[in-house]
Amino acid sequence: MRVVVNGEERALAPGTTVDAVVRELAGEAVRGVAVALDREVVPRELWAQTVLAEGQELEVLHAVAGG
């Protein structure tokens, strides 16, 4: 299953959740992390139950210095 994660196409196992990808990228310290799936916010409480699908675009964001 191909999913675009932060602009890069990745091959993920079917059934992979948003939560799994977030923890792989950001580690366990997920305070200050936000996720958009196909441009819309996925609230934290839905990460574990949101299963990714072929062709979706996931953005995993956090705070950086700037602005």
């Binding site: 932060n6 602009g7 792989e24 990228l25 950001a26 992390v33 936000a34 953005e59 995993v60 964001l61 956090h62 705070a63 950086v64 210095a65 700037g66 602005g67």
Partner: peptide
Amino acid sequence: VTVALRRVDP
């Protein structure tokens, strides 16, 4: 203080 949001870079 203000901060920006950008992609997580592992």
